[in-house]
Design a protein around this nucleic acid. Structure first.
Length: 580
RNA sequence: GGUGCGUUAGCGAAGUUGGUUAUCGUGCCUCCCUGUCACGGAGGAGAUCACGGGUUCGAGUCCCGUACGCACCGCCA
């Protein structure tokens, strides 16, 4: 035993105890014949004091050495209120160096000087820092709570294969070449979707898994190529049952990690979310709903608006109170650039202050139109109106993005608030320009709304599904759906997706066949664990909550994965690398 | 696939209209210091200015390309 106490546990009451501690030297303060060492482990920091008779013991000890010290707990003359252990110190009588350390490439402290790439290359050093360590501990706490809650409700944790089968729909697969079957590949799962549905057919009526998933798509601040999904599936259940279970899990997590109990879970239909917020994952920590003002301008002489309406487009407006002074001309120029990313041409704006209008379109629209706008939007002095005239989808999404940006910039977001909402009745299909066909918006096993069954084949644009998302503070926290459990219905959806019999048989044959042997009605969700832990820990960077994350180009700076392999390994797999 | 920003001692940054010894902070090393807790004081070492090419009498600085990092758009059933 190198220690009988951790560096985080000693308190006033331990005074006089003889203890043995071990840990990393976080800081060495040499005052001449007396030396203080801050000793750190996972649990905290304890000051070790080497007095005049013992300071020689640590003469050669440097930062990040691993040492074992023995000594007596004493009360500090002047406590350090910043540390939990700040009232005590250990007066050392011995010091044993367990491991030496080179000068580290980064300062290991809560506030480090290093940028993210250095921290990723030396992630094991980064993990010694509280900000990262605490997030990993929080992540553990969350999965523990999830397991507890679900186990109490009879859910069974089942592990499904990592070496899986490529799926034609959806994200790009990570592929694993097979040695025994030349030219064939396993695929790493994008989600355990089919397996969990097969578990339902297998009678495992309440399943969950803390499942690693893989998607070979480009990354973002909130997206990693491998990530963890809290995967849940229930039989003999519908939306109400799964929503209740998920809400129960969320309530337990927020209560135990944040002490928050007053959560609510409002529901918004997809079309309404798009209409009001221009997003299927709106941040409801602030209001500022978008308003359709197309009708106010149906006879306008303002060419830009008139043309947009003539082309079947709409005019969306967004009002921010008390923003006149905060938004300068320069800001609006920036907004124009900002919305171009979302394919909108420009943002029109009006300021209403001191009972008068000003702004980019002040001279372009009539007094009547301005007054109509004022009445309709109930404008007050200090209000700023932002408008985008464009095709419906473009206007919605671009203004929605601007809403989010301004919500942040104008300080409308209360960062201590947690706003959930269920987004329901997603479209069944979406049109893929790339493939020039309709594809599943969610996945092809999603059930259509009962009232839309007759639109499955003939009116795909207006066919909605029983798919839902749970959104938290503007992040898509989970996706799920009520699944199709009837093989005729499934066949119909495949047909609508223009999958050939051969494709269906090849890709989903085993899955479809299973539905011929008694499939219960079932539904489920996959909760993005990293996103949840991100929000709980107040970071907007997914890498902070992953122990060993990849960079934005899916590279591991620490291990240098992916790497080249020996020719032998390629030969075993009958693979040849194409030369450019 | 696309757009933008970035790359200068171990780490983080500054570097003016192109100009000769590349600056600061921190970390590191040495010495001094008995109550520090971001200890303090004195001194010292430490740079292929990402890489390749170009413009120029002269490039950290300007131009082109490449690599890497970050963010976003596309993509993410």
């Amino acid at each position: 035993m190198n220690r009988d106490h951790t560096c985080g546990q000693l308190r006033k009451a331990d005074e006089g105890k003889h203890v043995r501690l071990a840990g990393w030297v976080a800081k060495r303060r040499n005052l001449g014949s007396i030396v203080f060492i801050d000793l750190r482990d996972r649990y905290g920091i304890t000051q070790i004091t080497f007095d005049e008779n013992h300071s020689e013991l640590v003469k050669d000890v440097r930062n990040e050495y691993v040492i074992e010290v023995e000594g007596t707990v004493a009360l500090k003359a002047t406590p350090n209120p910043k540390l939990a252990t700040g009232e005590v110190e250990v007066i050392a009588s011995s010091c044993k160096v367990l491991s030496t350390a080179k000068t580290t490439p980064m300062i290991i402290a809560d506030e480090t000087d290093a940028l993210e790439d250095v921290r990723l290359k030396y992630r094991y050093l980064d993990i010694r820092r509280n900000p990262i360590k605490e997030k990993l501990l929080l992540r553990d706490k969350v999965t523990t709570i999830v397991r507890d809650v679900l186990h109490k409700d009879d859910f069974v944790e089942v592990e499904t294969p990592i070496l899986s089968k490529s799926t034609p729909e959806g994200a790009r697969d990570y592929l694993v070449p097979s040695r025994l079957y030349k030219g064939r590949f396993y695929a790493l799962p994008q989600s355990p979707q089919q397996y969990k549905q097969l578990l339902m057919i297998g009678g495992m009526d309440r399943y969950f898994q803390i499942a690693r998933c893989f998607r070979d798509e480009d990354l973002r601040a909130d997206r990693q190529p491998e990530f963890t999904q809290i995967d849940i599936e229930m039989s003999f259940a519908d939306e109400e049952d799964i929503f209740a279970e998920v809400e129960k899990v969320m309530r337990a997590i927020f209560k135990e990690t944040k002490g928050i109990e007053d959560l609510s879970f409002p529901r918004i239909k997809y079309v309404d979310a798009m209409d009001k917020y221009g997003s299927d994952k709106p941040d409801l920590r602030f209001g500022n709903e978008m308003v359709n003002v197309t009708d106010l301008f149906k006879d306008t002489s303002f060419v830009v608006f008139a043309n947009a309406i003539k082309d079947g487009g709409i005019i969306k407006a967004l009002v921010f109170h008390n923003a006149c002074d905060k938004l300068s001309r320069k800001k609006f120029d920036e907004f124009n650039e900002f919305v171009k990313v979302y394919k909108a041409k420009a943002v029109a704006y009006l300021k209403y202050d001191k009972d008068a209008f000003s702004g980019s379109i002040n001279n372009a629209i009539s007094e009547d139109e301005k007054n109509a706008l004022k009445d309709y939007l109930k404008l007050e002095n200090g209000d700023v109106v932002l408008m985008i005239a464009d095709k419906k989808e473009v206007a919605q999404v671009a203004l929605g993005a601007l809403r989010k940006k301004l919500g942040e910039e104008l300080g409308l977001i209360d960062h201590d608030k947690y706003c959930f909402e269920w987004i329901t009745e997603f479209p069944m299909y979406e049109y893929s320009q790339e493939e020039d066909r309709w594809v599943s918006a969610h996945h092809p096993f999603t059930a259509p709304r009962d009232e839309d069954v007759d639109k499955l084949m003939d009116d795909k644009a207006n066919c909605y599904s029983r798919a839902y998302d749970l959104v938290l503070n503007g992040y898509e926290l989970l996706s799920g759906s009520v699944r199709i459990h009837d093989s005729n219905m499934q066949a119909k959806v495949f047909e609508a997706l223009e999958l050939s019999q051969e494709q269906i048989k090849n890709k989903f044959g085993f899955f479809i066949e299973a539905f011929d042997y008694g499939a219960p009605p079932h539904c489920g969700v996959g909760i993005g664990l990293e996103r949840l832990v991100m929000i709980l820990s107040g970071t907007d960077n997914i890498k902070d909550v992953v122990a060993f994350p990849k960079t934005a180009s899916a590279y591991c700076l620490m291990s240098d994965a992916p790497n080249y392999v020996d020719q032998d390994q390629l030969d075993f797999l009958s693979l040849e690398i194409k030369k450019d």
